[in-house]
Every structure is written in C-alpha cells, then in structure tokens.
C-alpha cells in the first residue's frame, strides 16, 4: 500500500465518523426544514407532499388564497425581533465593555473570581431566572413597591410585558455571550499602547477612539454577533417577560410547530431568520476582510 494511500485511509478513519455524524445530524434536520418550508401543511399536523410556495407568500406578500393569505403582521413581528435583538446587543455592549475593562485590570485572583461571577447565571435554570424577573417587574413586584415606597410613583408602572422587559431579560441572559469575547480582546490590549498614545499627545478620548476601540473591535463584532443571533430567535424571554403583547419571531415559530401544527409555515419563518443571520455573517466577513487591508 503506498504511503499516500495509507495516509488517506488514516484520515478517513479519523475524520470519517465525525463528518458523517455532522452530515446526518446537523445538515439533516436543516435539510428537512428547507424541504418542509415548500410543502403543504397536513390537516392534523405533519405535511402533505404537495409543493407550495405560499408559506413564503404569507410572509412576503404574494399569497392570496382562501386559507393562505398574506398578513403584514408576520413581517412586523420579524421587524420587532430585529429591533429588540439589536437593542439587546447595544445594551449588553454598553454594560460589558466597561466591565470587561475593569475586570481585565484586576489582580489575577480577583479577576478569575469576577469572570466566574459573570458566568454564574449559567448554573441556574434560565426559566427560574426569568421568573425571578417577573417577581421583580410585576405591578406588585419589588421594583414597583420600592418606587411607590419612596413616593416616586403613585400607581404601579407597567414594566412587565413591554419591550423594556424583553430587552432587559435578553440583556440579562446574553451578557455573558457579549462579555467573554469582549474580555478576550480587551485583556490582550497592551496597557503600554494606551500610555504610548498619551505620550504622543492624545487625550483620553482620542486614545479611546484611535487606539482602544479599533484594537478591541474584533471582540465587539464577535460579541455582537453571538449575542444577536440567539437574541433574534429567542422565544423563552419574550414568552415569559413579553407575554402576548411582545411577540417575537421565535414565539411565532414555536406556535406554528406546537400549537398551530403548521410545520411548513413554521419552517418558512425559521428560514427567514436563518437568511437574516447568514446575511449578517457575510457582511461581517466582508467588513473583517476589509479591515485587514
């Protein structure tokens, strides 16, 4: 047996299994979703194997049959999801950036403890943590009682089931996703570069704009993307803190699969989310490549 052939067989033996696994269990379900999104919903759930483009037509505007009609509400829910996910990214960035800076300058012992604290919420069930927020935000919750107690408001403020509650909840859930990549790039930043910038005449603001921000941009972009993607498709936070008033695309997809039993339509909605994410990733790759030159 030639050496090249033996190497090939070795590689095949090592990588063949995992590759096959990924093909079957990663691309397989995805493929099923793509196919389903072009089928007709079955009467009692499942699908009928009849081609249909109306699932997309209902979302994007060309469906006009008796049962399958275009409704702009789907696009507006999608728009709201984009908006809430973007706002979540911004608020988590605004909180994580100074925190990462602060923690990266701590002594090693404290630093490890602080990072542990950041990841601590992962150890508690998401549902439990979100219901804790319900207790805080509801009209008779801690926040409103506190505000009324000090006389800032006479009536309880509607915090729960608003955009605010959803953004707050998603920020709370996704801050570690934003924090960790940010921390990675901020920790690498050489403090001597900041001193060098000051030494060469730059004010603190100029140093931030010209040295700190560009040097930590990979972390910002990385954090923004891995926060934005799960935030966009999230359905647990809006269903607990947003209720029926603040529906996100994730809730809609969940309803299609679990309550409405319209799998093809749910698949089409999921494709919409996936397309948005792919577009975003392509734009990011382009930007990153542009930044290198």
């Amino acid at each position: 047996m030639s050496l090249a052939r033996r190497k090939f067989l070795q590689l095949l033996g090592l990588l063949g299994g995992p590759t096959l696994f990924l093909l079957v269990f990663f691309f397989g379900p995805l493929l099923i979703m793509v196919v389903y999104s072009f089928l007709t919903p079955g009467l009692y759930g499942g699908v009928d194997w009849i081609f249909s483009h109306l699932n997309y037509g209902r979302i994007l505007g060309w469906a006009d049959t008796r049962y399958e009609k275009f409704d702009p509400v789907f696009l507006s829910i999608f728009g709201r999801s984009l908006r809430l996910a973007a706002l979540t990214v911004i608020t988590s960035l605004l909180i994580s950036y100074p925190a990462a800076f602060w923690i990266s300058r701590m002594t090693p012992g404290r630093r490890d403890f602080a990072i542990f604290l950041v990841t601590l919420p992962f150890f508690v069930s998401l549902i439990v943590r979100l219901f804790a927020w319900v207790l805080i935000l509801r009209p008779t919750g801690f926040l409103n009682q506190g505000l009324m107690g000090v006389g800032l408001t006479a009536q309880p403020i509607e915090f729960l089931y608003t955009d605010f509650a959803v953004i707050l909840g998603m920020t709370y859930v996704f801050i570690p996703f934003m924090f960790l990549p940010l921390y990675g790039s901020i920790e690498k930043l050489d403090i001597a570069q900041i001193e060098a910038s000051a030494d060469l005449g730059a004010t603190r603001f100029q140093t931030f704009r010209k040295v700190v921000l560009p040097a930590t941009m990979p972390g910002i972009i990385g954090g923004a993307i891995i926060t934005f993607i799960p935030a966009l498709g999230n359905f647990i936070v809006p269903s607990v803190l947003g209720g029926a008033k603040v529906l996100m695309i994730g809730n809609l997809i969940e309803q299609q699969f679990l309550s409405a039993r319209n799998w093809p339509f749910g698949s089409a909605l999921a494709m919409l989310v996936m397309t948005a994410v792919l577009v975003l990733l392509v734009v990011q790759l382009r930007l990153a490549r542009h930044g290198e030159h």
């Binding site: 001597a192 570069q193 001193e195 060098a196 030494d199 060469l200």
Partner: peptide, 16 residues
C-alpha cells in the same frame, strides 16, 4: 502626560 513635550520609546515598543 499628553501635554508634556517629551516622548518615550517603550521597552516592548508598544506599537499600535
């Protein structure tokens, strides 16, 4: 530091 008429060559250069 940013107003002083001196500049520094740093030990590990601290280039941007």
């Amino acid at each position: 530091a940013h107003k002083r008429p001196v500049n520094t060559v740093f030990q590990r250069y601290a280039l941007f």
